[in-house]
């Protein structure tokens, strides 16, 4: 059953009088709980497709459906609410808030998702999530005291703390060495299965594809 559906997605960027079509009639369905990898050469449009799917930029044409909502037909504020409550994000860089500790990064996400959880549930969920990414012992650390791999694990914890239904990952291992990269991918794959999270991930790393349930290749703005 498709949790997330893209129909006829097109994206055109205008530069003065000329325009460039980055995405051409993309159709894609994501099955609940599956990890889908978007791959392709640089400039193929995979990152643009990911950010459009995640509601971070608008389409020129097409429809995005998530559960019973048509994201392309609702207001920007409603899309933000969907992002906050149901989507998780992992980017190429960890992008942690530099003045918050590891634990506070997760608390911020819980506040953003406006979940009506008890204090006890928040505490246990934070502990459980940080333990799942192996960062509980670093809960009071500031981002500046963490390594690249540790930061990315915190970013993953932040992306799943609010129990999202979708996880969007844009080259999550690009800034990591192969060992850390494997660790992070095992983590994403494991959490996806354990928590039944649907993952759409952009990567150009061949080694990462082994963790995907499905690989979608893109070329010149089209799925091939």
């Amino acid at each position: 059953m498709a949790l997330f559906q893209l129909d006829n997605i097109q994206k055109t960027f205008k530069h003065g009088t000329t325009s460039e079509q980055i995405l051409q009639s993309i159709d894609l369905e994501l099955t609940k709980g599956a990890l889908t990898a978007l791959t392709g050469a640089s400039g193929s449009g995979k990152s643009t497709l990911l950010t459009i799917a995640a509601g971070l930029q608008e389409t020129t044409e097409g429809t995005i459906r998530f559960e019973d909502k048509t994201l392309t037909a609702i207001s920007a504020e409603q899309v933000r609410e969907v992002r906050a409550k149901h989507f998780g994000f992992v980017f190429q860089q960890a992008h942690l808030v530099p003045f918050l500790t590891v634990k506070e990064q997760l608390e911020l996400m819980l506040d953003t998702a406006e979940l009506k959880w008890s204090k006890e549930k928040r505490r246990s969920r934070i502990k459980e999530t940080l333990e799942s990414v192996g960062m509980w012992s670093h809960r009071d650390s500031q981002p500046e005291n963490l390594s690249g791999g540790e930061k990315q694990r915190v970013a993953i914890a932040r992306s799943i703390i609010h129990e999202p239904k979708m996880l969007f990952a844009d080259e999550p291992t690009a800034s990591l060495d192969s060992k850390r990269s494997a660790e992070v991918m095992s983590l994403i794959q494991g959490l996806s299965k354990e928590l039944d999270i649907t993952v759409l991930m952009v990567t150009h790393d061949e080694d990462v594809l082994q963790y995907a349930d499905r690989t979608v290749e893109m070329k010149d703005g089209k799925i091939i």
Partner: peptide
């Protein structure tokens, strides 16, 4: 701006 952009991406309200 970078931090604000990421916070907006994950759903933090501009008013926050």
């Amino acid at each position: 701006l970078g931090t604000f952009g990421i916070l907006k991406a994950v759903g933090v309200k501009t008013i926050t």
